Amino acid sequence: MKQNSSAILDNVYAKDFEALQLSIGASEKAIGLEVSKPILNGQFRYHAFQNGLSMHSVNATEQQDASNAIELPPGLSINFIFSGIVEFEFAQQSHTLQPIDDEASCSVIVNSRQEVMKRRMKKGEYVEKLNIFVELPWLESRCQSSIDRKNLNSLLSRTSVLSWTPTKQTQKKAKRLLKLDQAMSFMQVMHAEQLTIEILTQCLNDLNNRIEPHNDAATQLLNDHSLRLKAAINEHLEVHNTVGDVASALNMSERTLQRKFQRHYGECISSYIKQRKMEHAKVALLINRKTVGEAAYIAGYKHTPNFINAFKKLTGMTPSAFVRSNQEQIDKKHQA
């Protein structure tokens, strides 16, 4: 990916976020958003430095009561909140980020798999924040030893959101990155990338100090090989629906794949495939605005009624009710 950047001073529209989403390989759906009207008034800037590492900053007032749902790839999303309140849902849990005792707060979304995040905006809310996003392959490419890989795998073994008050030094660096000139020269881009990596390094150190080691058997089995195995399976699930098809794509027998998956993750691969396919269906319904029939096809079901029954068994509601419920939750939040 080529270096990419954008800077906007004044009204910011939904289309202005498209390059940012493309830089991290994310897909998005706006809910209750009037695309012809600005969503922010102030400063918005982003820069994609190299494959898998990007930053964006906001120093603006939100102009609409709306939400957006975005599917994040595996990696870390680091947020520094200097002013305002940021609300979002991730992994079916609600989170609120804001400064702590007049100091910037830092939060990290640890995303071990493709996961949907829903961000809520409130008209009139002034927000000053910095985000650094780093994808898993970028982190993996920096590992120099088996110990590095083991530590990274442990860090990303569970999807979670962690928050703390960063050190004064880290806050200063984040503020400097936030305040860099909108139109950056070659040397300024180099400086911004250096600052971004320094902040990322400090946050990784903070994370390692805050995450307790997992002693359960399933987590201990989550080593470098197992991460690669699941990543390969997830890639083939885009076009294959059955264990046999995935095994063939990986050049192994179905029984071998079943044994390996059970050994590494402590669960049945067929159950995992059904779960992942349902997650794909949720994204299709909520973000890509697919019909129930289209979502059924994506989930690997030939008959829509069978998909509806399976979806209801998993989530407690039909696909149509799932979409309505997400819209109603957003509407209620905005009315509160």
Rank of each mutant, 00 (worst) to 15 (best):
N209S: 15
V134A: 01
D206A: 13
Q21E: 14
R324L: 09
A66I: 08
K2V: 01
L286Q: 01
Q64N: 06
P99Q: 06
S320M: 08
N251H: 13
Q202L: 10
Q93Y: 09
E18G: 11
V246Y: 03
M1Q: 09
G124N: 10
G266K: 13
Q63L: 03
Y13M: 07
Q98S: 09
V110L: 04
I100S: 11
V12Q: 07
E125F: 15
T242S: 07
D206F: 04
L20H: 06
R119Y: 15
G124D: 13
D10M: 11
K123E: 12
S54T: 07
W164K: 02
S107A: 11
N208E: 14
A249D: 00
A48V: 01
A192D: 05
N131F: 11
T318H: 07
K312G: 02
I298K: 00
M317F: 08
L155Y: 08
F307D: 00
Q258E: 12
A310G: 03
L221M: 08
H191V: 09
P305Q: 06
A336N: 10
R176A: 08
D102F: 13
I100W: 07
H264A: 12
A217R: 14
K274A: 09
N51S: 06
T315E: 09
M55L: 03
S107I: 01
S36Y: 06
T170K: 02
K179L: 15
D65W: 01
N288E: 12
N215V: 12
F322A: 00
S271E: 13
Q144D: 15
I147Y: 15
E28A: 14
H334S: 04
Q21N: 13
E193Y: 05
A14V: 10
L250N: 02
A69T: 09
I85F: 02
K313I: 10
P38K: 05
M1V: 09
V246W: 05
T96V: 11
A232V: 05
F186D: 11
F90R: 01
K302L: 13
S27C: 15
E71P: 09
K2W: 05
T170I: 08
H280L: 11
G316I: 07
A218S: 11
V12F: 02
T165D: 06
Y297H: 08
M121N: 05
K302S: 15
Y297M: 14
H225E: 15
L40G: 03
H95Q: 10
T304G: 02
N11L: 06
E212D: 14
Q194T: 14
V35T: 12
L97W: 00
E294S: 04
Q194R: 10
E115K: 12
A321N: 03
R210Q: 14
E125R: 15
I298G: 01
E279N: 15
